[in-house]
Write a protein that binds this DNA or RNA. Structure first.
Length: 275
DNA sequence: ATCCAGGACGCTC
DNA sequence: GAGCGTCATGGA
């Protein structure tokens, strides 16, 4: 078990920020969340009253993996401090989401998860993904005896005939095609990682059946570490229309636009501190 | 019951 | 290139 002091780290805010779908409150442990990621299971406990956090993993696993997964080397306060103080809405949003971090998630899982997310709501996205994992993932048992299911592999998803009864709706054909491309080797996520140019990566993601501009940006932000991507979903578009007269000054925050996007999205969707 | 959801596709024009 | 209807499904 690892215990540390972490600034700008609030696991509850991260869980509710809509960037990941398999991070949920533990059903019977107080102040504790459970996470399945990259085939592993982790419990995160947020100690109330200070900024200490406990991770249920070895020091080696923390140093080799979870430290990067939770983006702990990045100073989020510097981002918050650079927000235009005259921007009342964004200032409030950043305050309400000051514990959010952009998780460095597995690109395959992010790709499929955000294809599922289109024209969908978060509770149902979570339920669908959980069903997908339970039926097609690998069953494992954590060190503390918790049973969990890993995210299904490209091979599994490409070989299943009846994906529709997992609750994917019309998106089943998108998922199946992408899974086939990855499983066959025609699409290499490793090769995509090598594309340093955002425009080129975005173009290649959007060439896939079922991935448009918004989903491509989410995949880049959450699965490829491109924190300068700014996905525009219905919530963001609504905020820009209602709070910014149709024009948000994203160029001011271009290097870390994805973080700003998360503050805005989280604030609006969770209706924080708004009368 | 009706509207909506971390939208994309395919068809017009 | 912009403007529409359509696409499953269930949460609120």
């Amino acid at each position: 078990m690892i215990k540390l002091t972490a600034n700008n780290f609030d696991i509850s805010q991260i869980a509710k920020s809509g960037q990941c779908f398999r991070l949920n409150p533990h059903p019977n442990k107080i102040d504790t969340w459970q996470l399945v990621a990259d085939g592993d299971y982790l419990e995160i406990k947020q100690i109330p009253g200070n900024n200490k956090v406990e991770f249920s993993c070895s020091e080696k696993d923390f140093n080799d993996f979870w430290y990067y997964y939770f983006n702990l080397g990045f100073n989020y306060q510097e981002v918050i401090d650079e927000i235009d103080p005259s921007d009342i809405y964004l200032t409030a949003a950043a305050k309400a989401g000051s514990g959010i971090r952009i998780l460095d998630q597995d690109s395959w899982e992010v790709m499929i998860s955000f294809v599922i997310s289109q024209n969908n709501n978060i509770p149902r996205i979570k339920r669908t993904i959980e069903m997908l994992c339970t039926r097609l993932g690998e069953k494992k048992i954590s060190d503390n005896g918790t049973i969990y299911f890993t995210f299904p592999t490209p091979e599994k998803l490409s070989k299943i005939e009846n994906l529709q009864d997992v609750g994917l709706g019309y998106r089943d054909k998108y998922i199946q095609k992408i899974a086939e491309l990855v499983y066959s080797g025609k699409l290499s996520l490793h090769r995509l990682f090598g594309l340093a140019d955002n425009e080129e990566l975005r173009k290649q993601l959007k060439s896939l059946y079922g991935i448009g501009d918004k989903v491509a940006n989410c995949i880049m932000l959450f699965g490829f570490g491109r924190i300068d991507c700014f996905p525009k979903d219905v919530w963001i578009n609504r905020i820009i229309a209602e709070e910014y007269n149709g024009k948000f000054p994203i160029e001011r925050y271009s290097e870390y636009a994805g973080i700003i996007q998360q503050y805005l999205f989280n604030y609006a969707m969770n209706k924080l501190d708004k009368e």
